[in-house]
Nucleic acid binder design. Structure first.
Lengths: 225, 225
DNA sequence: CGCAATCGAGAGCGGTGCTCTTGACAGCAT
DNA sequence: ATGCTGTCAAGAGCACCGCTCTCGATTGCG
């Protein structure tokens, strides 16, 4: 059982993270200021360092929280009982919706890395959650016989063993070609969302909702769903 | 004929841009400091403002220069006499090579937008150059009869008229489906490159070169090339 | 040649991340 | 209850940032 001291400490640390998230949504990651967080919480800037080791550590916490929130959104949108194609579309829409609702957090996760900052290993499992959802859909589709039998090709230099295991495991319908396409559609999804969010589609696309639906529908096709 | 004053002014302005590019490669866009540029050039920080109105203006110049350099690389890699599929692969490889050679400039162009900075209209034509190359390949392929005849569907809410004109214009083989796929592969290409550059493939892909080749080969397939 | 435009340098403003010291406070053991 | 120990907020301070202003020096055109 945590002491009273530890409890209030955890509470204040949480308040700092919340304030940082609010500031992130307002001014973006690069402009996130520890002093502003301290101002918002009504304490001295130096006091914040009692709870957060550095600005980078605060960023890391926001990154992990972001990956977790996005992963939870993706998992929540996946209905294992639905058809693989519909599952794929639903997850894609959920990822996009989360990105549109949290543009700065999305930019923090999938935009340019913050200079001088390298994400610690802690972020990896949280970052993988969306990929796990996609892999589960692909694996279920293979087991359901939706995907045609493959050549059985295997090449760990293209897709690593760990990732291959997530991408439906060893199933006759999942060969290296399918795995490559899975990684491709995965990155394509975020390419599409990033382009929309970062303004590279302005002037080219009017109805972003409908365009996204057609785009991920096309991606489902290359996935074989 | 420019006066001697104007010439030395242009020269110093160029030196400032070069130093900024060097600093960009070292510390990234968000940490680009006008004072450090001034230090590197051995002049007072205030003197730089004689040549550059603001840090944002310097960033804009770097962005435009970056788009132009990338566009030139793409154009230079495109051999109009080659087969459409080979042209597509060559342009993709050239774009990736440029990105790998100039990671920070690439991040400036296709990563998270710099906070508090909105790209002015001047950047649009430079940014469009890569898309123009892709559109030219697609149009040539259609005129060469490589693409199957389409449905003739047209929907400016999906792909705007200006972009549609770039994407091969009005040709029976190019319907809205092809245009959507073109925009999709375009953003997918940068999604793939961004994922590689920003580290989202670490642990999943070992041989990035071969993986990229297979990925853009797949993209060529969805393009119909 | 003289005057106006241009230029470099310096000081200064308010902001940042981060460190160090100081003093107040709480909790626990004696 | 007292004294010790660990935690805390606060402030001063360092070096850096973007940007502005002023002040001489220099330059080049009329």
């Amino acid at each position: 059982m945590p002491t009273a001291r530890a409890r209030v400490r955890a509470e204040i640390t949480g308040e700092i993270a919340d304030a940082a998230r609010r500031q992130l949504a307002e001014v973006g990651a690069a402009a996130l200021s520890l002093r502003a967080v301290a101002r918002e919480l009504g304490m001295a800037s130096s006091a914040v360092y009692r709870y957060v080791p550095s600005r980078d550590d605060l960023l890391t916490r926001l990154i992990i929280d972001g990956y977790d929130a996005l992963g939870a959104a993706a998992e929540g949108a996946d209905d294992p009982a639905a058809a693989p194609r519909d599952r794929w579309l639903a997850v894609c829409r959920a990822v996009r919706a989360w990105a549109l609702a949290h543009p700065h957090e999305y930019a923090l996760l999938y935009g340019s890395p913050v200079p001088g900052y390298t994400a610690p290993r802690d972020t990896v499992p949280a970052a993988a959650r969306v990929g796990v959802v996609l892999g589960r859909i692909l694996g279920d589709a293979a087991r359901a016989g939706v995907l045609p039998e493959g050549s059985g090709e295997r090449d760990p230099a293209l897709v690593s063993d760990e990732t291959a295991a997530v991408l439906g495991g060893s199933h006759p319908a999942i060969d290296e070609d399918v795995r490559v396409r899975a990684l491709l559609t995965w990155s394509s999804l975020f390419g599409v969302i990033s382009f929309e969010l970062f303004g590279h589609f302005t002037g080219s696309v009017a109805d972003h909702d409908r365009w996204f639906d057609r785009a991920v529908g096309e991606l489902a096709g290359t996935l074989g769903l």
